Simulated scan of single mutants.
Amino acid sequence: MALKRFDPSKFTANTAKPLPVMLLLDVSASMGEVLDGTYARTGRTVYEDGQKWELVKGGRTRIDVLNEAVREMLASFAREEQLEHEFLVSVITFGGSALVHLPPTKASKVEWKPLTVAGETPLGEAIALAKKLIEDKETTPSRAFRPVVILVSDGRPDAGWEAPLEAFVASGRSMKCDRIALSIAEGTDEQVLRRFIAGTPNPLFRATDAGQILETFRRVTMSVTLRSKSKDPNQAPAIESVVAASPPAQTQPPAQAPAQAQPPPPAAPPRPVGDPDDGYW
């Protein structure tokens, strides 16, 4: 029997195909509002994010609930990762300024750093930053499945959001993403969120208390998980038909009314003929 020296460079291991999940999360000052729990009044007030607030001690705030929801999502994705697929999660925050809180990272490798609140609501900066990451084929690889982009906000954006949002939904690779929007407070500018999801089959979700926020995140998580297991992970299942999995017993909150889904927006115009990225996703 003849022998030949083994050359490991000629053999490659199977590499999981990523499903990018990008979260655009509002962390403006209003996200520090107490939703439930026990708190003590201090008698002091501040003016933040265009509103006057009373300072209190204790209680569970909207940002606390958002942190809990994201941690649950990451844990669920990490459990579901398999040889064929992986969840490539990134987080962009907007509060005072837009920042990449978490660069694209395999879910099972994420070490979550809790979100904190600051400033006003520069949504346009966040959307422009998200588009930059998606258009970059090294950051969002061509071999990846169609990304899902989830926008969560509790208020009204600062001026200058129109052009970045229009560019995101109407041009380049970003227009082909599956887009989901969640309003998590009364008074949120829902027309902006509706423009973000224009052209998708997804409704606008509304969740105004802790239980609704967590429940909606679980439904979105399950939808993305089902995509990863389907014959064609580029096709997203209708979120309205998805039943969220229950969280671990120790983290399950008291039962709350389900989040309300609004009717989907009108379809976007057809893709222009000669799209240079035609065929991608």
Rank of each mutant, 00 (worst) to 15 (best):
L19T: 05
L19I: 13
L19H: 05
P20E: 11
P20T: 11
V21T: 12
M22I: 15
M22T: 09
M22S: 14
L24Q: 08
L24G: 04
L24V: 14
L25C: 05
D26G: 00
D26V: 11
D26P: 03
V27P: 00
S30P: 04
G32W: 08
V34N: 04
V34Y: 06
V34I: 14
D36H: 09
Y39C: 07
A40N: 10
A40Y: 06
T42C: 08
R44W: 02
T45H: 11
T45Y: 07
E48Y: 07
D49F: 10
D49T: 02
G50W: 06
Q51K: 03
Q51P: 02
K52N: 13
K52F: 06
E54S: 01
E54L: 09
E54M: 08
E54G: 01
L55G: 02
V56P: 03
V56R: 10
G59D: 10
G59E: 13
G59P: 00
R60M: 01
R60T: 14
R62W: 06
R62E: 01
I63T: 02
D64F: 01
D64L: 09
D64T: 08
D64Q: 07
V65M: 01
N67M: 04
N67S: 03
E68R: 09
E68M: 03
A69H: 11
A69P: 00
V70W: 01
V70P: 00
E72P: 00
L74C: 06
A75G: 09
S76D: 15
S76K: 05
F77L: 09
F77E: 05
A78T: 04
A78S: 10
L83E: 13
L83R: 13
E86G: 15
F87H: 07
L88M: 07
V89L: 04
V89C: 06
S90G: 13
S90C: 05
S90A: 15
S90N: 12
V91H: 12
I92K: 11
I92E: 10
I92Y: 11
F94R: 14
G95V: 10
A98D: 04
V100W: 00
H101T: 05
H101R: 12
L102T: 12
P103G: 04
P103Q: 13
P103N: 15
P104W: 08
T105Q: 13
T105M: 02
T105Y: 05
K106G: 04
S108D: 14
S108G: 06
E111A: 13
E111V: 13
K113D: 12
L115R: 12
T116I: 11
T116M: 10
T116K: 12
V117R: 08
V117T: 15
A118P: 02
A118I: 05
A118H: 15
G119D: 11
G119A: 04
P122F: 07
P122C: 09
E125L: 03
A126Q: 08
A126C: 09
I127Q: 01
I127G: 05
L129Y: 03
L129K: 11
K131W: 00
K132A: 04
L133P: 03
E135M: 11
K137E: 14
T139I: 07
T139Y: 01
T139G: 05
T140G: 01
T140A: 04
P141T: 13
S142I: 09
S142L: 15
R143T: 03
F145A: 14
F145S: 02
R146L: 10
I150E: 06
L151W: 03
L151T: 02
V152Q: 13
V152I: 15
V152A: 07
S153Y: 01
S153W: 05
S153V: 05
G155E: 09
D158M: 10
G160L: 12
W161S: 02
